[in-house]
Amino acid sequence: MTNAIKIRSKSRYVFARVIIYIVLGIAAITTIFPYVWMVLASFKTGLEITTYPEQIFPRSPGFDAYVDAFRKLNLGVGIKNTLILEVFAITFSPLVSALGAFSFAKLELPFKRTLLLILLSSMMIPYAALMLPQYQIWQSIQLVDTLGPLIIPSFFGSALMTFFFVQYMQGVPNELFEAAKLDGAGYVRQFFGICLPLIKPALTAQIVLTFVGTWNDYFVPSIYLTGMESKTVQLQLLSLQQQQNNLMDMNIVMAGSVLSSIPMLFIYIFCQRFFVESLAISGIKG
C-alpha cells in the first residue's frame, strides 16, 4: 500500500467517524431535550410559559413550582400511595413467583410442562380484555377507589416473573437440594435457605424492574383511583390538568414531573445492567 492511499483511506475513516458522531449526537440530544425542557419549564412562572414567544431560559428561576407541586398537585399523597403499592409489589409478587418457580424447577410437580404453558398463556390475554369484569369484581367488594385492586393481585405472583425464575433455577444444580433433603431440611427451608439465596441476582433484577414498573404504572391505577386521597404519583401529575386545560399551571406540572422522574433516573443509573440484561436475555432467548 502506498502512502498516498493510506492517507486517503485514513482521512476517509476519520470523515466517516465524524459523520457517525454527528448523527448519534443529534439522536442523543433529541432524546434528552424533552427532559431539559421539563426542567427549564419547572423553573419558570406560569406567566412565562404562557407568554408568547416563550423564552428558553427562566427569567428568575425559583423553586415556587416545586413547593406548589406538593401543595396543589398533592404530590406528597401521591408518593405515599405509590410507596404503599411498592411495598407489596416488591415483596409478595417476587416471593410468590419464586416459590412457584421453585416447585416448577426443582420439585416433583405433576404435569409441570403443561401447567407452565397454561400459566404462560395468561400473558397472551391483553389487560383490556379483562378490565371490565375485573372492575366489577372489585366493585362488588367495594374496593374501587382504594389501593386494594392494585395490592391484592401481588399476593398471587406474576406469570412472567415465574417464568423468568424457572429459567434461572434450571441453571442451579439439583445436588444442592438433594443434599439438603438428606439433611432433613423441609421444603420451606429448602426454599428460603437454598433457593432464594441462589437466585439472588434474578430476584434483585426482578425487584428493580417491578419497582420501576409500579412507580410508572398509569393505566390500571387510572381506572381504580379517582379520589384525591387515593391517587398515585403518576395520577396526581394529571390532577391539575383535568381541572383546567390551560398552560398556567404547567410549571407546577413540570416540577411534579421532574420530581417523579428523579427516583427512576437514579435507579436507572445505578441498576442499569439489570434493565439491559433482562431485555437482552428476553430477546436472545426469544
Binding site: L24, A27, A28, T31, I32, P34, Y35, W37, M38, A41, I49, V212, W215, N216, Y218, V233, Q234, L235, L237, L238, Q241, L247, M250, V253, M254, G256, S257, V258, S260, S261, M264, L265, I267, Y268, Q272, F275, V276
Partner: peptide, 24 residues
Amino acid sequence: FFRVVLYLPAVTGAVAITLVWKLM
C-alpha cells in the same frame, strides 16, 4: 453512553414524558 441515554424514556414515567410532549 449512547445506549444508556437512548433507553432513558423507557425508564422514566410515561405520564411526565407525555405531559412535556404536550407542552412542546
